[in-house]
Nucleic acid binder design. Structure first.
Length: 546
RNA sequence: GCGCCCGUAGCUCAGGUGGAUAGAGCAGCAGCCUUCUAAGCUGUUGGUCGGAGGUUCGAAUCCUCCCGGGCGCACCA
């Protein structure tokens, strides 16, 4: 809405003429409609530097303020010194033109132009099926990436595969044991190995494909083959899940590539050249305490092997070399202890403090039939992501993962996600979209064919209609704020609010056959568009009928 | 013991980076269908924002301490 920028500029100008130091003018939309359409706390923030009471500053600001005709209907000073603006009706309705002209692009901005951001998420070990926690990370990472795209950043979605560590070794030995069991031999799953039934099935598949002689291979050869087969198989399963869940990655990066391309050695050399490493007790240490970590960290153990940290540093160094200005990682809460050392390592390499950002996502608990569904990766009993989205549908699962802050502990209520009533927020929002679509279906018109041109939008004067106009006008700023904070849940909250007003409006007023039909069709088309944009931004469908 | 996150209505959670009388959904209570989807709408009950200090014109929001919950504190990954 351009009116906001005009007001902002006028306020800045007035402040300057009062001799105030330059500062950002904050505009907000008051919660209470009695406080106008736009408000600013400028007088309160300037009071101190001008050495005057906030209300006195407000009065001088208003007296000095120069606004073009026809923009604002009323300016008031209220409370401790807020300046409230009531916009002219024509200004409110102008948002409809913006929405319909921009269409699918309404809400997009370009604050991030010129910035390349890497968003890494899920990055599950290739050792088993994705579980519900990965689902939360997938939904969140994908939505964060979309938010950044909507604000003009160039984004790459990336999945990191730990295919070189001890976990895949355990996978290989577990699978080998299952192969032995499948041909009737005694074999134990190794300590800390993978107990899940999926490896029993995979063992049978392997024997069918390779023949029973596969089980007679020498152990080391068998384990080696099992490693490749296991990783390949689990990666394929995970990709299938993610694809069905609506998540697509631009890049899959393997840990083994770090070794192949000598990136580990280069990273070590870099860190050493910057004077950030030292040897002690036969190990090589990184001086992370110089950058805010609690203690220094080992990079190369005294037995000559590397810790997990070093390949991770090398990986993130590689992201920097690829030209990203920011690297955002979505990590499970069980990794939050790594944030400080990784951030320190990035600074040790000389990167800006804001290059690396870890977004921590808390674990998910699943509730069904009023009881918590327990899961444990160790025993192989767990709720897989696939089970979940097959039961609730992808839209509901994604929405539920996104409707809470990532750092809040979250209980996924399966029964609620499946319910097709107003209690279920995703249904509620989609229903609002379907209802708007229904109007056009009955009218026999395409929503996209609706234009505000020549329509008397002044007919939209009911409280629900004015509330909808303001809500629609908020969307671009909301997206920008959600992107800056990396908080997709702001979008779901907004959608529920918009849907609620839309339902109330729909219920209270008819569109077709009324004198206000033309104007209300424009409003319905715009509401439908913004609901769809918000849902699509989160990777959720916007059905025309339910 | 140390670090990070969290604590807001009976329940699940918002609270837009310090603003106006703390909000929504669910649950509860009372109502609403000759209509473009009642798969919905309207009204209403409900609060010491975990506690105590502090910062300032102003604090759920910032700082300190305490209480309670989760997670993490390896030459594991």
């Amino acid at each position: 809405m351009k009116a906001l920028e005009v007001i902002r500029a006028a306020l800045a100008d007035a402040a300057a003429r009062l001799g105030a130091p330059a500062c950002a003018v904050e505009l907000e939309r008051p919660r209470d409609p009695a406080h106008g359409d736009v408000a600013t706390n400028l007088a309160l923030t300037l009071a101190k530097s001008l050495k005057q009471k906030p209300r006195a500053v407000a009065e001088r600001l208003v007296a000095t303020l120069q606004l073009p005709q026809g923009l604002v209907r009323k300016v008031e000073i209220a409370g401790p010194g807020f300046i409230n603006f009531v916009l002219a009706e024509a200004q409110l309705a102008s948002v409809l033109e913006s929405v319909l002209a921009a269409g699918d692009g309404y809400g997009k901005g370009d604050r991030g132009r010129g910035t390349r951001v890497n968003v890494e998420f899920v990055s599950a070990n290739p050792t088993g099926p994705l579980h519900v926690g990965h689902g939360r990370g997938a939904a969140l990472g994908d939505a964060i990436a979309s938010l950044l795209e909507w604000t003009g950043h160039a984004v790459e979605r990336e999945f990191y595969v730990n295919d070189a560590g001890v976990q895949v070794d355990k996978l290989a030995r577990s699978l080998w044991a299952r192969v032995q069991q499948a041909v009737g031999r005694r074999a134990d799953i190794p300590e800390g190995g993978y107990q899940g039934d999926y490896l029993v099935e995979l063992a049978h598949t392997v024997l069918e494909r390779e023949g029973r002689r596969f089980a007679d291979l020498a152990e080391e050869e068998g384990v080696r083959r099992c490693r490749a087969i296991g990783v390949e198989s689990q990666r394929r399963e995970q990709d299938e899940d993610l694809r069905e869940f609506g998540v697509r990655f631009d890049v899959t990066f393997s840990e083994s590539q770090l070794y192949r391309d000598m990136l580990i050695e280069q990273t070590l050399a870099d860190l050493a050249a910057r004077g950030c490493t030292y040897e002690q007790d036969g190990a090589l240490w990184l001086r992370t305490t110089a950058f805010g970590d609690d203690k220094d960290r080992v990079l190369r153990k005294s037995d000559g092997t590397f810790t997990y940290l070093l390949p991770d540093i090398a990986y993130h160094r590689h992201k920097h070399e690829r030209g990203f200005t920011r690297a955002i990682d979505v990590w499970g809460a069980d990794h939050h202890g790594y944030v400080a050392r990784m951030r320190a390592a990035m600074q040790a390499l000389g990167y800006p403090a804001d290059f690396f950002h870890a977004e921590i996502v808390q674990l998910v608990r699943v509730m069904r039939g009023g009881e918590e569904v327990r899961f444990s990766k160790r025993t192989g009993e767990f709720v897989t992501l696939r089970d979940l989205y097959q039961e609730t549908g992808v839209d509901a699962a994604r929405y539920f993962f996104l409707m809470r802050r990532g750092d809040s502990q979250f209980v996924f209520d399966v029964d609620l996600a499946k319910s097709q009533t107003e209690e279920n927020p995703v249904f509620y929002v989609q229903m609002a979209h379907a209802r708007m679509s229904g109007i056009f279906r009955v009218a026999g018109r395409e929503p996209s064919a609706v234009s505000p041109e020549g329509v008397d939008l002044g007919a939209l004067d009911q409280p629900e209609e004015l509330a909808l106009l303001k809500e629609l006008a908020d969307f671009p700023d909301l997206v920008a704020g959600a992107a800056a904070a990396l908080e997709p849940h702001r979008i779901t909250g907004y959608l529920e609010n918009l849907a609620r007003i839309a339902h109330a409006w729909y219920h209270k007023f008819r569109v077709l056959g009324e004198p206000e039909e033309a104007a209300r069709l424009v409003l319905a088309a715009a509401v439908r568009q913004v609901l769809a944009n918000g849902l699509h931004l989160l990777g959720i469908g916007a059905p025309d009928r339910m």
